[in-house]
């Protein structure tokens, strides 16, 4: 089985490559990434498994290169995206360019050169916007940010492929946890970094805002289950739990009792979003094995000091 992973050098991609590199039913892993975020963690140890990994530095808007590299793939994981946390509204055009039109180019290339490929596309719960009631894939998206809108438009292109193949669209919550290409702009990771190394975290808004989250192990476990399992077509929410910022602070204070937290603009009531676990992913999405404090502790243990 040949698998291509766009954004394969990124936060999720690097962990996915590492996980799949030990699966000897896979004959080749192609990492397609433009390295635009500067992540190079994929390329350093610990050593990968035995599956041959091939890196292609490429832009998903380079249709010619994309067609060449996706030809004959059995699985395509489209992870490449522009994400700028927390500034999901800065630089609208670049969100459109990568997340919307880049995904359209992916769809064209898959149609043309990978007719048998099952596809997994990572979208985001940002497509739901915000609201008091819990959102899920049965409600019509109402994105409130340029990022959310671009991911939703990307979905509409991917949905075209569902007519003749399996396409799994996963709307991810905020991802956290250690990794080769860990993103420290992701809120939980950033807070842990600040708590550990600075003793004080900075909070935007009132701290009451809620978001859906998922640990990176839950993401990788789910993606791994989609490699060999029964093809799963449709749109799903890949989240584990909702948290407010203040919930998160409480968990951090368990590890760092003297932690300070500074509100930058606490008069602001920022948008909230709640998304429950998707029951349809039962048996595919791993059960969460640790609580938040244990997860934070595990990541804390990865710091160099």
């Amino acid at each position: 089985m040949k698998i291509a992973i766009t954004g394969g050098a990124g936060y999720i991609g690097a962990e996915l490559v590492a996980a799949l590199s030990t699966d000897e039913r896979i004959t080749e892993l192609v990492v397609y990434d433009d390295l635009s975020r500067g992540h190079h963690g994929l390329f350093m140890g610990p050593r990968m498994g035995r599956v041959p990994v091939r890196f292609v530095q490429g832009d998903i808007l380079d249709s010619r290169k994309l067609r060449k590299e996706l030809a004959g793939m059995d699985r395509v994981f489209h992870l490449a995206a522009k994400v700028t946390t927390p500034f999901a509204d800065a630089g609208h055009h670049h969100f459109e360019q990568v997340n919307h039109w880049g995904t359209a180019e992916m769809v064209y290339a898959i149609e043309d050169v990978a007719p048998d490929a099952c596809v997994v596309y990572l979208s985001s719960t940002a497509v739901y916007g915000s609201g008091e009631a819990a959102a899920n894939s049965g409600v019509r998206p109402a994105p409130r940010s340029a990022y959310g809108h671009s991911k939703w438009r990307g979905e509409t292109h991917m949905e075209r492929l569902m007519d003749d193949r399996s396409v799994t669209i996963l709307r991810l919550g905020n991802v956290y946890g250690a990794g080769r290409s860990v993103r420290f702009d992701a809120v939980i990771n950033r807070f842990l970094f600040e708590a550990h190394h600075k003793g004080r975290i900075s909070i935007s808004g009132s701290g009451l805002q809620q978001r859906p989250f998922i640990h990176i192990d839950g993401v990788i476990g789910t993606l791994g289950a989609l490699v060999h399992g029964t093809p799963l077509s449709g749109i799903f929410d890949l989240v584990d739990h909702d948290l407010s910022v203040l919930d998160l602070v409480e968990a951090l204070r368990t590890l760092y009792p003297k932690l300070e937290f500074l509100f930058v603009d606490q008069h602001l009531e920022l948008l909230s979003l709640k998304v429950p676990r998707d029951a349809r992913l039962q048996g595919i999405q791993p059960e969460r094995k640790a609580d938040l404090v244990q997860e934070l502790e595990a990541m804390q243990g990865r710091f160099a000091w």
Binding site: D62, S63, H93, H94, Q97, W101, E105
Partner: peptide, 13 residues
């Protein structure tokens, strides 16, 4: 011409 070659110096399409 791929879209990646239809950008200006600032990266805009």
């Amino acid at each position: 011409v791929p879209k990646s070659q239809q950008r200006d110096a600032s990266g805009a399409l």
